[in-house]
Design a protein around this nucleic acid. Sequence first.
DNA 1: CTCAACTCGAACAGCACTGTTCGGGTTATG
DNA 2: CATAACCCGAACAGTGCTGTTCGAGTTGAG
Lengths: 195, 195
Amino acid sequence: MSHPPAKPTLRADAQQNVTKILDAAVACLSRNADASVSEIAKTAGVGRVTLYGHFPSRQALVDAALTRAIADGEHVLQALDLTGDPREALDALIKSSWLLVAQATAVLEAAQATLAPGRVQELHAGPAQRVDDLIRRGQADGAFRADLPANWLTSVLHHVIHGAAIDVAKGRLESTDAARFISQTILAAYSKAGA
Amino acid sequence: MSHPPAKPTLRADAQQNVTKILDAAVACLSRNADASVSEIAKTAGVGRVTLYGHFPSRQALVDAALTRAIADGEHVLQALDLTGDPREALDALIKSSWLLVAQATAVLEAAQATLAPGRVQELHAGPAQRVDDLIRRGQADGAFRADLPANWLTSVLHHVIHGAAIDVAKGRLESTDAARFISQTILAAYSKAGA
DNA sequence: CTCAACTCGAACAGCACTGTTCGGGTTATG
DNA sequence: CATAACCCGAACAGTGCTGTTCGAGTTGAG
């Protein structure tokens, strides 16, 4: 344990810079899909050369940023109990982590432009499956409508969350309202037609 | 009338090329927001120099493409009767023109990156107002829920349509299903909670 | 204190895109 | 058919980004 094998020398200072860079990368890429490396470095308060010292290419940086954004989202998802009423579970999911989901989705969109499509799918698979399972269970329980396919419902959820994030960024929506609006819209959209 | 003032010489051949270029520009820009001029020219089957002969800059081209995409959308909207039951009117609107709306929205998104924000707002205002009016009327009639603001409902509509277009483009959704899915989703999302 | 690890600005080559010019070829129109 | 309008490829300068090198300064760890 006290001997991390393949890392002969990594100063405490350096690793701290790496996280600063990743923070900046996630922030910039979720705002602007094709943010330049200079812009990310400046946002991180770091020289461009230093950045290239930690990530060999822009692709590698985007990959790392996406990995971290998705890991953050997955971490929040794992802390939630999704076993109760699908409606309540979905409501809790939205209210606790819509912002993280929106950020991860935005970075994912940025990554889609520059990363191999298989790699994107690979990283995104985990958390996406978790949400998909919840929706399918809701359909099987009769809590959600079954006249539309589950992957369409998940797609709607993603796009509504993404849209809300854009609206907040553009000042068209108060961030304090966002979670409530999303939840009420999605639950209505998922409810059975006859109900 | 037989003397168009400021256009001393415009050959019939040339104007035809202009429309080919605009077609290509709309197609390319709705697929990829930052498509190059070369790519658009090649898609139009036209030399890059010819393109610059008709549009002085990339900005002007994007502006013209957006103007035409929105004009197309507005043309379809004007042909619709939106005075009946708001639910049926919205359903008809989606089924007749969701693809055009999606295309216009995509081009608009591309334009947002390169055009002045005021100009975008200016072009988009017309058709957007028309949809907004329909939704507000539906709320006043009691056909649509009123516990969420109208501009949020319009935002949801746009983002769901946009998302459906992306899903179709990526092969995750059959284009024959799209209109029905959008309509059923939106109508449920707009319905009153207690109903 | 000392040294290696780290940081940083300046500057370079390579690349892609924009916008322009030149010269020769095509074609509609009168 | 003759001319003016138009089309087009090649090639140029200018710009911004990527990825790299160099040399000098700063700082953490032993």
